[in-house]
Deep mutational scan, measured.
Amino acid sequence: TTQFTVHSPEQAEQWKEYAKQKGLEVHVQKKNGTWHVTIH
């Protein structure tokens, strides 16, 4: 599991796309103005 924080919805979307291409599961949670992205 990879977990990191991004600071814009655009970055979060890019990671979603990346994960989809790799066939991975991605979870994005918005918290205090940042987005926590978890890739399984």
Rank of each mutant, 00 (worst) to 15 (best):
1 T>D: 10
1 T>K: 11
1 T>H: 10
1 T>R: 09
2 T>C: 15
2 T>S: 10
2 T>V: 15
3 Q>G: 07
3 Q>Y: 13
4 F>T: 05
4 F>I: 13
4 F>S: 03
4 F>M: 07
5 T>N: 07
5 T>A: 08
7 H>Y: 14
7 H>W: 09
8 S>V: 04
8 S>K: 03
8 S>D: 07
8 S>P: 01
9 P>N: 11
9 P>G: 11
9 P>Q: 15
10 E>Q: 09
10 E>L: 08
10 E>F: 07
10 E>Y: 07
10 E>C: 06
11 Q>I: 13
11 Q>V: 12
11 Q>M: 12
12 A>I: 09
12 A>V: 14
12 A>R: 02
12 A>D: 01
13 E>L: 08
13 E>Q: 10
13 E>D: 10
13 E>T: 05
14 Q>N: 07
14 Q>F: 15
14 Q>D: 06
14 Q>M: 14
14 Q>A: 14
15 W>P: 00
15 W>R: 00
15 W>E: 02
15 W>K: 01
16 K>G: 04
16 K>I: 15
16 K>D: 02
17 E>M: 08
17 E>Q: 11
18 Y>H: 04
19 A>F: 09
19 A>D: 01
19 A>Y: 10
20 K>E: 10
21 Q>A: 13
21 Q>G: 09
21 Q>L: 13
23 G>T: 02
24 L>Y: 10
24 L>G: 02
25 E>T: 12
27 H>P: 00
27 H>D: 08
28 V>T: 03
28 V>S: 01
28 V>M: 04
28 V>H: 00
29 Q>V: 14
29 Q>M: 10
31 K>F: 11
31 K>S: 11
31 K>T: 10
32 N>R: 05
32 N>V: 02
33 G>E: 08
33 G>N: 08
34 T>L: 14
34 T>Y: 14
34 T>N: 11
34 T>D: 10
34 T>H: 13
35 W>P: 01
35 W>T: 02
35 W>N: 01
36 H>G: 04
36 H>R: 09
36 H>S: 08
37 V>I: 14
37 V>W: 00
38 T>N: 03
38 T>G: 01
38 T>E: 06
38 T>V: 10
38 T>R: 04
39 I>G: 00
39 I>E: 01
39 I>F: 04
39 I>T: 01
40 H>I: 14
40 H>F: 14
40 H>T: 11
